[in-house]
């Protein structure tokens, strides 16, 4: 069997005995061009790029990602631009696997099938849909798989053991563990130890799944999660973009430096 690009990325990290670094940036933040430049500039330091397709009524995002999303929408980002950005990014020889992340209404309005076809065409490798939980996502997840797009299930500290087992059974090669009860970008309000305990609980159910931890991870705490399969950093990067704009600095270099530093902390 051929390994999916996402699985391959994790495998490479394991060889290097470090977690995969996943970044989250919003497509079109703060312009289409800049967001592509950011992706290109961080690509050699990250293992998987999560790219948000912004929605103007996000019910699970904190302030930083909301700011990035609203900024991108204000600058006119459309779904077709999101796919354009992915397509162009994928032409970079250093390009990494891409996971699109967003809210279901955007996919629903685009049309599930058309959306997945477009994902396949442009080189999207995975999909996270924040508000389409299991088991409601079962049919759609299958459709994703048929289009060689990995559907990434989410687990939360509130997910019961029994539910976890069922979700993991229906999951593909990667699973996203939400670190704590929070929207994205919240302060890490529980200890890394508690989070890793939950992490290990999930791994115990099926250790072959690539399990990444996200929500509240920043340069300050990422080194505490070295034992995880992967760490996602989103809000800190979005915040960096906001600060760069405010200070009239180049967000591309600032984000690139930040990501380089993140990588160093887990290597």
């Amino acid at each position: 069997m051929i390994m999916s690009p996402i699985s391959l990325a994790f495998k490479n990290c394991k060889k290097e005995k470090r977690p995969a670094l996943l970044t989250y940036t919003v497509a079109g933040d703060h312009t289409k061009k800049k967001s592509l430049e950011i992706l290109n500039s961080i690509s050699s330091h990250v293992d998987i790029c999560e790219i948000g397709f912004p929605h103007n009524t996000p019910i699970a995002d904190g302030g930083q990602i909301q700011t990035s999303s609203y900024r991108a929408i204000k600058n006119g980002i459309k779904m077709k631009d999101v796919f354009q950005i992915v397509k162009k990014f994928k032409k970079n020889i250093n390009a990494k696997p891409v996971i699109l992340m967003g809210y279901y209404n955007m996919i629903y309005q685009y049309g599930e099938n058309k959306f997945l076809k477009k994902c396949k065409q442009t080189g999207v490798n995975g999909l996270i849909v924040v508000d389409l939980p299991w088991p409601d996502n079962k049919i759609f997840a299958k459709k994703c798989k048929n289009n060689l797009v990995s559907f990434i299930q989410l687990l939360s500290p509130t997910t019961s053991q029994a539910r976890m087992e069922k979700i993991i059974k229906d999951s593909h090669e990667m699973i996203y563990l939400i670190s704590m009860l929070s929207t994205t970008g919240g302060k890490l309000k529980v200890s890394p130890k508690t989070i890793l305990k939950n992490y290990n609980k999930v791994k115990k159910i099926n250790k072959s799944k690539n399990l990444v931890i996200g929500f509240g991870i920043t340069s300050k705490n990422i080194s505490s999660f070295k034992t995880a399969d992967g760490c996602v950093v989103g809000s800190e990067i979005c915040k960096k973009i906001s600060q760069s704009i405010e200070k009239r600095q180049n967000p591309v270099t600032n984000v690139s430096n930040m990501v380089k530093n993140l990588k160093k902390k887990i290597s």
Partner: peptide, 20 residues
Amino acid sequence: NGFWGGKFGGNFIPETLKKP
């Protein structure tokens, strides 16, 4: 699944809210 008429309603919620 929580839908009226097969298509209105439902639970399009983040995983964290499933349990509560």
